[in-house]
Design a protein around this nucleic acid. Structure first.
Lengths: 66, 66
DNA sequence: TTCAAATGTAAAGTTTATTTTACATATTGA
DNA sequence: TCAATATGTAAAATAAACTTTACATTTGAA
């Protein structure tokens, strides 16, 4: 699975740290997520979708190996 | 977070076991998810959304304590 | 250039998702 | 009723998410 959190963050001009605070996770969680180091929970995905005002499907994309 | 997988499953008339096979998880994962026993991964949410041909947001709903 | 803010990363620890096995109960059709 | 299928659940084990701390590197503005 891939995501475009980094781009969405750039559009909203918000740092990893501030985003982390907004959705109540650690900064490292945001960083690791952007780097594709792990698959976030659905709660996290929904919170990001709410924050960025966009569907979950426009943030996260399944890949063939998922 | 809540979900309406049970309803969607009823509409499509598919058993927990068959759904589990379709999205490649164990039947217990489907059962526990329906029962709200844990929060699935985003990969799982996206697979369910694809299978049920509906947005992730229409399957899962954040609650105040999320 | 210099300082501060932002980002990348890593290791250790905790919590939680998911699997496997197993069994009990419920439901439904013949 | 009987048998098959579906569902609920539980315990133990494993994998993975997420946190905390800590430090190094990058970037951008003054």
């Amino acid at each position: 699975m891939t995501n475009n959190i980094k781009v969405l963050r750039a559009i909203k001009n918000i740092s990893q740290e501030d985003l982390a605070k907004k959705i109540q996770v650690s900064r490292q969680t945001i960083n690791a997520m952007e780097k594709g180091k792990y698959v976030p929970s659905t709660v996290l995905a929904l919170k990001l979708a709410m924050f960025f005002e966009t569907p979950v499907e426009s943030i996260f994309t399944l890949e063939s190996d998922d």
